[in-house]
Design a protein around this nucleic acid. Structure first.
Lengths: 203, 203
DNA sequence: TCAAAAATTAACCATTTGGTTAAACCAAAC
DNA sequence: GTTTGGTTTAACCAAATGGTTAATTTTTGA
């Protein structure tokens, strides 16, 4: 068989696996369901990816890499802090609105598999907080923004942007929103969040 | 056998089940492990709680009720908005620091089991956003705070407080924190978050 | 004291699940 | 056309898992 089809099949398996893993999470995912949805025999899964664990790791890695480099490039550019912030909120929310299960999946599996999570983060070109932390300190010293621990600021930004996706069902339930309203709200947040932080940090 | 011991056993099972479910999540939890940790026979689990699903629902309900009424009472009191906010951040973070797995558990299981999640929320004395939403609108009209959609404000508050707990492992990994630093940061956030929001909403 | 009721257990059971094996299939090279 | 290599499948397998049953132990209350 040609290399072509080989790659195609592997690709189809991985894409299907991403779907199922994101929908159900690692623990609740069944190899059989992936095989069924991909229209192949279960044994073929093990032919391409040796085990459930390895398939999961391929899925996780691909998912993580779908947004990490982008975040990285924004945070490591030369722009002023607030420009980065607007760009980040916009890009991140836009992307996550198209990939609704991504954040919950990453968050959940990191929590449930922390040994793997840490070794994965160490092996990967992950967003590096030192550069932007330096920038935050510099802008504080320059009097552009109020003093704040850089990690607190970063944590707040991530929280404001990511939590609504991470806790989608809870939030919709508590605030009595349907999906349409949720999307509207998240679109507003592309500017609302940076505006809010800008205001909060006004010296 | 006395009603006493009955209650005691049921209580011990439930407490153990809370531990295991929070550690592993519904899908990865094994009835056998709960039985082992509780020092009883597996059949006894089914004697008190008919099935894994029912045990899970008891666990989930008890966990949810550990904090929902408190949040409720704070948000529905007569205080000014910012007083509530300070009280909420302080109480919530203090409690979650002592129950590290609670938020991730609730968030994860609501996501993975949304049919159950919604019917549960409907059946329960959940935090009701209408009251505090009214208050927010009133304080906007009184010129105390800037205009903002009440749901956006509530969503932001929840995000800032809850996300670090929900995504603990991811956050520690990205920001390179050990647990000690995490605790320090979260303690600072008891006032940092309300301060930040207060500033952001200054008219 | 002793029989009935409740609690607890050991042994089972059916099904599900991740994973394996050996055979079949199929495109291409010779 | 036949061999050869990787690809795909049907059939299996052993372990794990949620759940049940029937018997045993403990408690109760008359």
């Amino acid at each position: 068989m040609s290399k072509e089809k080989n790659q195609q099949t592997e690709e189809r398996i991985l894409e299907t696996a991403i779907e199922v893993f994101q929908e159900r999470g690692m623990a609740a995912t069944r190899m059989q369901e992936i095989a069924d949805r991909a229209g192949i025999n279960k044994a073929l899964l093990h032919y391409y990816f040796r085990s459930k664990q390895q398939l999961f790791e391929a899925v996780f890695s691909k998912c993580f890499m779908q947004f990490a480099p982008k975040v990285n490039s924004i945070f490591q550019s030369e722009e002023p802090l607030f420009d980065k912030l607007y760009r980040f909120a916009d890009n991140y929310i836009t992307f996550m609105l198209k990939n609704r299960f991504l954040v919950p999946f990453i968050v959940q599996e990191m929590n449930n598999n922390s040994e793997f999570a840490f070794s994965f983060l160490d092996s990967v070109n992950r967003p590096d907080p030192t550069i932007i932390s330096g920038q935050i300190k510099a802008e504080i010293e320059a009097g552009i923004i109020k003093p704040i621990h850089p990690k607190q600021l970063l944590l707040s930004i991530f929280s404001l942007v990511a939590f609504p996706f991470a806790a989608q069902v809870l939030i919709k339930g508590l605030l009595k929103m349907d999906d349409e309203e949720f999307v509207t709200l998240m679109n507003e947040r592309k500017t609302l969040i940076p505006d809010m932080i800008k205001n909060a940090l006004k010296p």
